[in-house]
Design a protein around this nucleic acid. Structure first.
Lengths: 143, 143
DNA sequence: CAAGATTGATTAATCAATCTTT
DNA sequence: AAAGATTGATTAATCAATCTTG
């Protein structure tokens, strides 16, 4: 398990790129992306409103990344910013009606795209995939 | 193989992201990245010089992407641009001495990082990985 | 001073113009 | 007109300031 190691990384990154493009291209039709959809999902799970810092924590990403992500969602009319009355340093992201509608459409589109991708795998292969990914996560030092 | 399909995409993208970060962080120490290293590899394989369009073809990416990639490689002193005497529309990327040195260092660093990632996989698991990625590539419509 | 958000920079990819040369 | 490279725009992530508020 050392000689062909280089092909493994290349294959993993290549396939992940194709899979991501496949799903992103479907979401783009709805003015969505995986990043935007995940943000809307966390907002809805939280009841429609989250402080930007809370959203960053749940997306497990940078605060400044969330600032820009909310900029884009706001430009699309899927979210708007509101002041946080409890802490004036903080700003709230609030999902709009259009945001709730597009979230439902986007979730269906993502599910369809995922099924297209993984339909060819048997139940056993699906389990192999999950097991392999978990092993690699540990090796890469994922917390 | 439909109910848990959502976890499969998430796991694949998550793991690929961790693996990429793992390798990129090692390359960054040398002022390199996977994109830069691949470009240097193609230049060396071609004897040190390639027209930007040829490089784009071999990297299987956009021409404008290559323009920017060569900008960065040039800023690092790993490559320089030269006129193409056969076709004055075209520009050549020429690898420098520093580029050849850093390519050797980068290749060793990448190999080490890849081995760390995939050392935990058995030979059979390695084959499973390659087989699964190939299946998903076909489903995603990879040409 | 520390926390929350923002701004600007950098890397990376893609797409749509644009400009030069064939 | 078509090919080759570049420029500018957009999406996405990260990091280093910075500015406001606690």
């Amino acid at each position: 398990m050392t000689e062909t190691t280089a092909e493994h990384l290349a294959a993993l990154l290549r396939t992940a790129g194709f899979a991501e493009s496949h799903v992103e291209s479907r979401l783009a039709i709805l003015r969505l992306s995986l990043a935007k959809l995940a943000a809307l999902q966390h907002l809805i799970a939280a009841g429609g409103t989250l402080a930007l810092g809370q959203l960053a924590d749940r997306l497990e990403c940078n605060r400044s990344n969330v600032t820009q992500l909310v900029d884009r969602l706001e430009a699309d009319g899927f979210v708007h910013r509101a002041p946080d009355l409890n802490d004036r340093r903080s700003r709230l992201a609030v999902i709009t009606g259009a945001g709730r509608v597009v979230y439902e459409e986007g979730t269906r589109a993502r599910t369809r795209a995922e099924q297209e991708l993984f339909a060819s795998l048997s139940a056993e292969e699906g389990e192999q995939l999950i097991r392999l990914m978990a092993k690699l996560d540990r090796a890469a030092g994922a917390r």
